[in-house]
Design a protein around this nucleic acid. Sequence first.
DNA 1: AGAAATTTGTCCGTATGTATC
DNA 2: AGATACATACGGACAAATTTC
Lengths: 140, 140
Amino acid sequence: MPTSHYGQPRYRLIADELRRRIEAGSIPRGSLLPPESSLTAEFNASRGTIRQAIALLRHEGIAITEHGRGTQVAAFLPGEEPPRSIDLERIHREVPADAELAAIFGINIGATLVRDEAVAREGAEVESVTRTYRRPRGGP
Amino acid sequence: MPTSHYGQPRYRLIADELRRRIEAGSIPRGSLLPPESSLTAEFNASRGTIRQAIALLRHEGIAITEHGRGTQVAAFLPGEEPPRSIDLERIHREVPADAELAAIFGINIGATLVRDEAVAREGAEVESVTRTYRRPRGGP
DNA sequence: AGAAATTTGTCCGTATGTATC
DNA sequence: AGATACATACGGACAAATTTC
Protein backbone atom coordinates (compact mmCIF):
# COMPACT_ATOMS: atom_id res chain seq x y z
CA MET A 1 0.00 0.00 0.00
CA PRO A 2 2.14 2.85 -1.24
CA THR A 3 -0.29 5.55 -0.18
CA SER A 4 -1.71 8.10 -2.52
CA HIS A 5 -2.23 11.03 -0.28
CA TYR A 6 -3.75 13.83 -2.21
CA GLY A 7 -2.19 16.69 -0.39
CA GLN A 8 -3.19 15.31 3.00
CA PRO A 9 -1.32 12.82 5.13
CA ARG A 10 -3.17 9.61 5.90
CA TYR A 11 -3.65 10.29 9.58
CA ARG A 12 -5.48 13.50 8.73
CA LEU A 13 -7.84 11.72 6.37
CA ILE A 14 -8.53 9.06 8.97
CA ALA A 15 -9.18 11.68 11.61
CA ASP A 16 -11.60 13.38 9.22
CA GLU A 17 -13.50 10.15 8.71
CA LEU A 18 -13.74 9.43 12.42
CA ARG A 19 -14.90 12.97 13.10
CA ARG A 20 -17.54 12.57 10.42
CA ARG A 21 -18.86 9.40 12.02
CA ILE A 22 -18.99 11.01 15.42
CA GLU A 23 -20.85 14.03 14.10
CA ALA A 24 -23.22 11.81 12.17
CA GLY A 25 -23.88 9.77 15.28
CA SER A 26 -22.69 6.45 13.93
CA ILE A 27 -20.21 6.50 16.76
CA PRO A 28 -22.42 7.56 19.68
CA ARG A 29 -21.43 10.27 22.15
CA GLY A 30 -19.82 8.87 25.22
CA SER A 31 -19.11 5.51 23.65
CA LEU A 32 -15.71 4.00 23.22
CA LEU A 33 -13.98 4.31 19.90
CA PRO A 34 -13.04 1.00 18.30
CA PRO A 35 -9.65 -0.05 19.63
CA GLU A 36 -6.55 0.90 17.73
CA SER A 37 -6.21 -2.65 16.51
CA SER A 38 -9.64 -2.54 14.85
CA LEU A 39 -9.00 0.80 13.26
CA THR A 40 -5.69 -0.51 12.04
CA ALA A 41 -7.53 -3.30 10.27
CA GLU A 42 -10.41 -1.19 8.97
CA PHE A 43 -8.33 1.62 7.55
CA ASN A 44 -5.53 -0.66 6.59
CA ALA A 45 -3.13 1.70 8.25
CA SER A 46 -0.37 1.17 10.73
CA ARG A 47 -0.90 1.65 14.41
CA GLY A 48 1.28 4.72 14.42
CA THR A 49 -0.86 6.37 11.81
CA ILE A 50 -4.05 5.53 13.70
CA ARG A 51 -2.58 6.95 16.86
CA GLN A 52 -1.73 10.17 15.08
CA ALA A 53 -5.30 10.43 13.89
CA ILE A 54 -6.67 9.88 17.39
CA ALA A 55 -4.21 12.39 18.77
CA LEU A 56 -5.76 14.96 16.46
CA LEU A 57 -9.23 14.21 17.82
CA ARG A 58 -7.89 14.51 21.34
CA HIS A 59 -6.45 17.88 20.51
CA GLU A 60 -9.82 18.96 19.20
CA GLY A 61 -11.35 17.90 22.48
CA ILE A 62 -13.82 15.42 20.99
CA ALA A 63 -12.05 12.34 22.31
CA ILE A 64 -10.53 11.36 25.62
CA THR A 65 -8.06 8.53 25.89
CA GLU A 66 -7.65 6.59 29.10
CA HIS A 67 -4.72 4.34 29.65
CA GLY A 68 -5.76 0.72 29.58
CA ARG A 69 -9.35 1.49 28.81
CA GLY A 70 -9.70 3.03 25.41
CA THR A 71 -10.62 6.25 23.69
CA GLN A 72 -13.97 7.67 24.60
CA VAL A 73 -15.99 10.10 22.52
CA ALA A 74 -16.79 13.26 24.43
CA ALA A 75 -20.35 13.56 25.66
CA PHE A 76 -21.18 17.13 24.68
CA LEU A 77 -23.25 18.35 21.71
CA PRO A 78 -26.70 16.80 22.10
CA GLY A 79 -29.02 15.06 19.66
CA GLU A 80 -28.46 14.21 16.03
CA GLU A 81 -28.74 11.28 13.68
CA PRO A 82 -30.06 7.91 14.83
CA PRO A 83 -27.44 5.26 14.13
CA ARG A 84 -28.35 2.72 11.46
CA SER A 85 -25.51 0.29 11.22
CA ILE A 86 -26.17 -3.27 12.26
CA ASP A 87 -23.43 -4.85 14.22
CA LEU A 88 -23.16 -8.56 14.73
CA GLU A 89 -21.23 -10.11 17.50
CA ARG A 90 -20.83 -13.81 18.04
CA ILE A 91 -20.01 -15.59 21.24
CA HIS A 92 -19.37 -19.27 21.53
CA ARG A 93 -19.34 -21.15 24.80
CA GLU A 94 -20.32 -24.26 26.64
CA VAL A 95 -23.21 -24.13 29.06
CA PRO A 96 -24.95 -26.64 31.30
CA ALA A 97 -28.42 -27.65 30.17
CA ASP A 98 -31.25 -26.27 32.24
CA ALA A 99 -34.38 -28.31 32.84
CA GLU A 100 -36.15 -27.05 29.74
CA LEU A 101 -33.29 -27.72 27.35
CA ALA A 102 -32.54 -31.04 28.97
CA ALA A 103 -36.11 -32.11 28.31
CA ILE A 104 -35.96 -31.07 24.66
CA PHE A 105 -32.65 -32.77 24.00
CA GLY A 106 -33.43 -35.74 26.17
CA ILE A 107 -30.29 -35.38 28.23
CA ASN A 108 -29.54 -34.89 31.90
CA ILE A 109 -29.87 -31.54 33.54
CA GLY A 110 -26.44 -29.98 33.79
CA ALA A 111 -25.08 -31.87 30.81
CA THR A 112 -22.90 -29.73 28.60
CA LEU A 113 -24.35 -27.99 25.58
CA VAL A 114 -22.57 -25.77 23.11
CA ARG A 115 -24.15 -22.40 22.75
CA ASP A 116 -23.59 -19.94 19.93
CA GLU A 117 -24.86 -16.50 20.64
CA ALA A 118 -25.28 -13.73 18.09
CA VAL A 119 -26.13 -10.24 19.27
CA ALA A 120 -27.50 -7.92 16.60
CA ARG A 121 -27.21 -4.23 17.32
CA GLU A 122 -28.43 -1.16 15.58
CA GLY A 123 -26.16 1.51 16.82
CA ALA A 124 -26.15 1.26 20.57
CA GLU A 125 -29.43 -0.61 20.80
CA VAL A 126 -29.68 -4.38 20.94
CA GLU A 127 -32.11 -5.61 18.31
CA SER A 128 -32.09 -9.29 19.00
CA VAL A 129 -30.20 -12.06 20.70
CA THR A 130 -30.13 -15.42 18.98
CA ARG A 131 -28.88 -18.48 20.75
CA THR A 132 -28.34 -21.84 19.16
CA TYR A 133 -27.77 -24.84 21.38
CA ARG A 134 -26.21 -28.05 20.15
CA ARG A 135 -24.77 -31.14 21.70
CA PRO A 136 -21.00 -31.08 21.79
CA ARG A 137 -19.06 -33.21 19.33
CA GLY A 138 -17.72 -36.28 21.01
CA GLY A 139 -17.18 -34.78 24.44
CA PRO A 140 -18.96 -33.99 27.70
CA MET B 1 15.24 -8.36 17.80
CA PRO B 2 13.18 -6.67 15.16
CA THR B 3 12.37 -9.13 12.45
CA SER B 4 14.32 -12.30 11.92
CA HIS B 5 12.52 -12.71 8.69
CA TYR B 6 13.14 -16.26 7.71
CA GLY B 7 10.48 -15.76 5.10
CA GLN B 8 7.71 -15.44 7.67
CA PRO B 9 7.07 -13.18 10.64
CA ARG B 10 7.04 -14.88 13.98
CA TYR B 11 3.35 -14.44 14.71
CA ARG B 12 2.55 -16.34 11.53
CA LEU B 13 4.87 -19.17 12.44
CA ILE B 14 3.30 -19.41 15.86
CA ALA B 15 -0.20 -19.40 14.35
CA ASP B 16 0.88 -22.19 12.02
CA GLU B 17 2.09 -24.28 14.91
CA LEU B 18 -1.10 -23.78 16.91
CA ARG B 19 -3.23 -24.61 13.88
CA ARG B 20 -1.22 -27.75 13.37
CA ARG B 21 -1.85 -28.86 16.95
CA ILE B 22 -5.56 -28.20 16.63
CA GLU B 23 -5.87 -30.15 13.39
CA ALA B 24 -3.79 -32.95 14.84
CA GLY B 25 -6.10 -33.06 17.83
CA SER B 26 -3.45 -32.40 20.43
CA ILE B 27 -5.52 -29.35 21.27
CA PRO B 28 -9.08 -30.74 21.21
CA ARG B 29 -12.08 -29.03 19.64
CA GLY B 30 -13.95 -26.92 22.09
CA SER B 31 -11.11 -26.85 24.58
CA LEU B 32 -9.34 -23.79 25.78
CA LEU B 33 -6.03 -22.77 24.31
CA PRO B 34 -3.22 -22.30 26.80
CA PRO B 35 -3.35 -18.74 28.14
CA GLU B 36 -1.34 -16.03 26.47
CA SER B 37 1.10 -16.05 29.36
CA SER B 38 1.92 -19.72 28.79
CA LEU B 39 2.31 -19.27 25.06
CA THR B 40 4.52 -16.28 25.71
CA ALA B 41 6.80 -18.51 27.76
CA GLU B 42 6.68 -21.48 25.42
CA PHE B 43 7.38 -19.59 22.23
CA ASN B 44 9.60 -17.07 23.88
CA ALA B 45 7.73 -14.25 22.21
CA SER B 46 6.15 -11.10 23.52
CA ARG B 47 2.51 -11.06 24.40
CA GLY B 48 1.71 -8.81 21.49
CA THR B 49 3.17 -11.31 19.08
CA ILE B 50 1.19 -14.15 20.65
CA ARG B 51 -1.96 -12.09 20.42
CA GLN B 52 -1.30 -11.43 16.75
CA ALA B 53 -1.02 -15.15 16.18
CA ILE B 54 -4.28 -15.85 17.99
CA ALA B 55 -5.96 -13.05 16.07
CA LEU B 56 -5.09 -14.92 12.89
CA LEU B 57 -6.79 -18.06 14.18
CA ARG B 58 -9.83 -16.03 15.17
CA HIS B 59 -9.95 -14.55 11.71
CA GLU B 60 -9.86 -18.04 10.26
CA GLY B 61 -12.81 -18.96 12.42
CA ILE B 62 -11.08 -21.74 14.31
CA ALA B 63 -10.82 -19.92 17.64
CA ILE B 64 -13.14 -17.83 19.74
CA THR B 65 -11.79 -15.54 22.44
CA GLU B 66 -13.70 -14.32 25.46
CA HIS B 67 -12.56 -11.61 27.77
CA GLY B 68 -11.42 -13.00 31.11
CA ARG B 69 -12.06 -16.55 30.08
CA GLY B 70 -9.66 -17.57 27.38
CA THR B 71 -9.51 -18.61 23.78
CA GLN B 72 -11.55 -21.61 22.82
CA VAL B 73 -11.06 -23.81 19.82
CA ALA B 74 -14.18 -23.81 17.68
CA ALA B 75 -16.44 -26.81 18.01
CA PHE B 76 -16.65 -27.15 14.25
CA LEU B 77 -13.79 -26.18 12.04
CA PRO B 78 -14.77 -24.31 8.92
CA GLY B 79 -15.10 -26.86 6.21
CA GLU B 80 -16.58 -29.57 8.35
CA GLU B 81 -20.30 -29.14 8.25
CA PRO B 82 -22.52 -29.94 11.19
CA PRO B 83 -25.41 -32.28 10.34
CA ARG B 84 -28.32 -30.71 8.55
CA SER B 85 -31.57 -30.02 10.24
CA ILE B 86 -34.67 -31.64 8.86
CA ASP B 87 -37.70 -31.22 11.02
CA LEU B 88 -38.45 -27.78 12.31
CA GLU B 89 -40.82 -26.76 15.01
CA ARG B 90 -41.43 -23.21 16.14
CA ILE B 91 -42.66 -21.93 19.44
CA HIS B 92 -43.44 -18.33 20.19
CA ARG B 93 -43.89 -17.03 23.71
CA GLU B 94 -43.15 -14.24 26.10
CA VAL B 95 -40.55 -14.76 28.79
CA PRO B 96 -39.05 -12.65 31.55
CA ALA B 97 -35.46 -11.52 31.00
CA ASP B 98 -32.88 -13.30 33.11
CA ALA B 99 -29.85 -11.44 34.37
CA GLU B 100 -27.74 -12.21 31.34
CA LEU B 101 -30.30 -11.11 28.79
CA ALA B 102 -31.19 -8.07 30.84
CA ALA B 103 -27.57 -7.00 30.77
CA ILE B 104 -27.33 -7.45 27.01
CA PHE B 105 -30.52 -5.57 26.27
CA GLY B 106 -29.96 -2.99 28.95
CA ILE B 107 -33.34 -3.63 30.56
CA ASN B 108 -34.49 -4.68 33.99
CA ILE B 109 -34.37 -8.28 35.10
CA GLY B 110 -37.82 -9.76 34.70
CA ALA B 111 -38.86 -7.39 31.95
CA THR B 112 -40.77 -9.08 29.15
CA LEU B 113 -39.00 -10.37 26.10
CA VAL B 114 -40.41 -12.17 23.11
CA ARG B 115 -38.80 -15.48 22.44
CA ASP B 116 -38.96 -17.48 19.23
CA GLU B 117 -37.78 -21.01 19.57
CA ALA B 118 -36.95 -23.35 16.72
CA VAL B 119 -36.22 -26.98 17.46
CA ALA B 120 -34.43 -28.82 14.66
CA ARG B 121 -34.77 -32.57 14.65
CA GLU B 122 -33.21 -35.22 12.52
CA GLY B 123 -35.40 -38.21 12.98
CA ALA B 124 -35.91 -38.64 16.67
CA GLU B 125 -32.81 -36.78 17.68
CA VAL B 126 -32.78 -33.10 18.48
CA GLU B 127 -30.07 -31.42 16.45
CA SER B 128 -30.27 -27.90 17.68
CA VAL B 129 -32.42 -25.44 19.55
CA THR B 130 -32.35 -21.87 18.35
CA ARG B 131 -33.87 -19.11 20.41
CA THR B 132 -34.20 -15.54 19.29
CA TYR B 133 -35.05 -12.89 21.86
CA ARG B 134 -36.45 -9.49 20.97
CA ARG B 135 -38.07 -6.66 22.77
CA PRO B 136 -41.83 -6.58 22.36
CA ARG B 137 -43.20 -4.12 19.82
CA GLY B 138 -44.54 -1.13 21.66
CA GLY B 139 -45.59 -3.25 24.58
CA PRO B 140 -44.42 -3.64 28.18
C1' DA C 1 -21.16 -13.37 49.26
C1' DG C 2 -16.85 -11.54 48.63
C1' DA C 3 -11.95 -11.46 47.81
C1' DA C 4 -8.18 -13.19 45.17
C1' DA C 5 -6.23 -15.13 41.17
C1' DT C 6 -6.38 -15.74 36.27
C1' DT C 7 -6.85 -14.15 31.74
C1' DT C 8 -7.82 -11.18 28.05
C1' DG C 9 -8.29 -6.10 26.40
C1' DT C 10 -6.11 -1.88 25.69
C1' DC C 11 -2.78 1.73 25.84
C1' DC C 12 2.03 3.62 26.15
C1' DG C 13 6.70 3.99 24.73
C1' DT C 14 10.33 2.33 22.14
C1' DA C 15 13.09 0.07 18.49
C1' DT C 16 14.65 -1.61 13.78
C1' DG C 17 14.25 -2.16 8.99
C1' DT C 18 12.02 -1.15 4.58
C1' DA C 19 9.46 1.26 1.03
C1' DT C 20 7.49 5.31 -1.03
C1' DC C 21 6.78 10.25 -2.02
C1' DA D 1 17.74 13.87 1.61
C1' DG D 2 13.86 14.14 4.43
C1' DA D 3 9.14 13.13 5.60
C1' DT D 4 5.73 9.80 5.77
C1' DA D 5 4.09 5.29 6.14
C1' DC D 6 4.41 0.37 6.83
C1' DA D 7 5.56 -4.13 9.22
C1' DT D 8 7.29 -6.28 12.95
C1' DA D 9 8.67 -6.91 17.78
C1' DC D 10 9.59 -5.91 22.65
C1' DG D 11 8.29 -4.60 27.49
C1' DG D 12 5.53 -2.35 30.98
C1' DA D 13 1.24 -0.87 32.89
C1' DC D 14 -3.59 -0.48 33.90
C1' DA D 15 -8.62 -2.05 32.96
C1' DA D 16 -12.13 -5.36 32.90
C1' DA D 17 -14.35 -9.96 32.66
C1' DT D 18 -14.33 -14.53 34.38
C1' DT D 19 -13.19 -18.18 37.37
C1' DT D 20 -11.81 -19.95 41.67
C1' DC D 21 -11.44 -20.17 46.51
